[in-house]
Structure formats: structure tokens, C-alpha cells
Design a protein around this nucleic acid. Structure first.
Lengths: 151, 151
DNA sequence: TGAAATAGTACTAATTAGGTGCTAATTTGA
DNA sequence: TCAAATTAGCACCTAATTAGTACTATTTCA
């Protein structure tokens, strides 16, 4: 259906929130701030943890923090973790031999599109997203990522 | 999952084939050429018909032809018919009020990405795809749509 | 009239997405 | 030291979407 899963949506929200905090944030806390279902949030955080994007501390006052700086985390990684590796068409990661037909007409234009999207998600960092959110209410200038990373 | 459905994949293949023919092509014929399941092909063609992208003639020697020229049909339309209207994130078509949170951090960068993709699929015509397929075995120059429509 | 096709619709099966539940382990503060 | 807060690691369920099939009717042409 060519859309991001809610899991990815949520993950971006969660990570952007963590990026704006210094102390650990608990699953409970983020869930209530953004009014998301707690079990879902907890699940996604666990997944982000096991993928090494965030680190955790248990017990009272425990929670999660980013493992790397927000500028070091890009959208591509997040999508890979919560959505699966991005492939607009299956054949994009299978260098040779289209299963359907040797001269399958879809390949080239769609593969070009795939690479464009890939480029964008790699160039967009969590820091870009956070910055963008902060300036959101003051819509004076265009956000940086738009001018910096795309034609 | 951020990928095109097989239906869309198939639809592009079918339409590209029709675009290269003058006489009506039957569902049976395309199915056998591309080794796709006949009922699937037939179904998609019916859908493309009812959406007005192709026209049909019944009976012996019947089949389907494009209703408009290949240069007049773009990827966006095809995706809309076989995949549903493209929306990278739900909120992209709901001008106001994010359901999740007023300052939802995802919106802007993802909406920017959405528009980039939208631009691409609108600029890529069936003619581009067909042309590209023909030149595929002679990988001398880059295909036209790449230079013409993207950064 | 019969074969080759489309037309329309409804159905089934497989996969994915979204969401939940349970129990264990760990930390902290009273 | 104990109870509460919190993560850890599973396994599970349900609903939605995708993929593919089936059947019957209609049209056309030789």
C-alpha cells in the first residue's frame, strides 16, 4: 500500500521525544504524553533496544535514552527496524534475474524511484526531525532538511 | 511495508505491453507472455477497464487496448487504481489536526518525502517506462525520465 | 451454433499489521 | 529488606490487506 506502518510512525515519535531529553524516559511516560497504547509503545521500545538504537535502565526512574546522537540516526535505520528493509519492488535487492520476465518493464523506473526514496531517508536524521518539530509553530522559513537534502 | 503491491507491479507490466501494441491483446495472451496467473491478469484488466485506463472488445480476436496514449498515463494513476491513493502517512491528506498529537514530530519531514514521491510518480509516464524497457538491453545512456524529471 | 473472449461479482487463502498478556529480572527508595 | 516501578523476553490473538480463484453471464465472430 506504499505507506509507512504505524509502528514506524510511533517509533519516530518516540525517538524524537527521547532525542529531546537527557534523563531516561519510561515507556509509560511517552505513552501518556502522546496518548498511544502503552503495550504498543513498550513493544516498539523493546525492539528499538534490541536493535541498538536506544539503551535502557531498569527499576524506578529507569527508562530509555538514545544510544547515539540524534544526528547520527537516520530515517532509513528506523524504517528498517520497525518496517523491514525498504524495497519498493522485490527485485531491487536481487541484482540479477527478475522472476517474472527477463525484460520486465517495471524494473528501471521503479528502481530509480526506490533509490530516490532511499537517498532521502538516509539523508534525513532524527536531529532534522526534532529541529523541525521545534520550529513547527513558527512557520517562517522552510525547514533545513528540505533545502539541504533534496533537489 | 512501503512497497508496491504485486497488483500494481502486474498492472504496470500489462499496461506497458498494451502500450506497445496496436491490436487488442487478450488477457490470456499477456498472462502467457509474462507467465503470470491468468485469473489475476484478467482481474486486473477488468479493474483497469472500469477505471477507464483501457478499453475492451469482446469475442474472438477481442482484448484490451489503451484508452489514452502512453504519454498521457502516469504512474500515479496506476498506483491509485491498483494500490489505492498514495499516502505515505495518513495525515498527508488531512490538512488539519493530527489525531495523535498536536505537535506530532513526524509530520513535516514525512510529508516532504510524500510530496517528492508523488512528484516522481506523476512525472513518470507509461511512455517513459515503455521507452526504458526497449533500451534496456543497450545500457549506453541513462534513460530519459531520470534526467528529465528528477533532480 | 460453438468457441473465444470479456463482465461482473463473490469468494477463499495467505500474509502482514496492530495490538495484548504473561512472567521474569532488575533497580531504587522508603 | 521489601514493595513498587520499570525493563526483558516471549508468545499470542485479531483484524485488515493482499493475492489469487471460481463461477456465471454476455458478447462477438467465424
Amino acid at each position: 500500500m506504499l505507506k509507512l506502518s504505524k509502528k514506524t510512525d510511533y517509533a519516530i515519535i518516540l525517538l524524537a521525544h527521547l532525542g529531546g531529553q537527557i534523563d531516561p524516559v519510561s515507556a509509560q511516560e511517552v505513552a501518556s504524553i502522546y496518548k498511544l497504547p502503552y503495550p504498543m509503545v513498550a513493544n516498539i521500545l523493546k525492539q528499538l533496544l534490541s536493535s541498538g538504537l536506544i539503551k535502557s535502565t531498569r527499576g524506578q526512574n529507569g527508562g530509555y535514552v538514545l544510544r547515539r546522537s540524534a544526528g547520527d540516526i537516520n530515517l532509513s535505520e528506523i524504517i528498517r527496524i520497525t518496517d523491514s528493509t525498504f524495497a519498493l519492488v522485490e527485485c531491487v535487492h536481487e541484482e540479477d534475474a527478475c522472476k517474472v520476465y527477463q525484460c520486465c518493464p517495471t524494473s528501471r523506473p521503479l528502481i530509480a524511484l526506490h533509490h530516490k526514496i532511499q537517498q532521502f531517508v538516509e539523508d534525513t536524521t532524527l536531529a532534522n526531525i526534532i529541529e523541525d518539530t521545534k520550529s513547527k509553530n513558527f512557520r517562517v522559513k522552510k525547514s533545513s532538511y528540505e533545502t539541504a537534502h533534496l533537489s
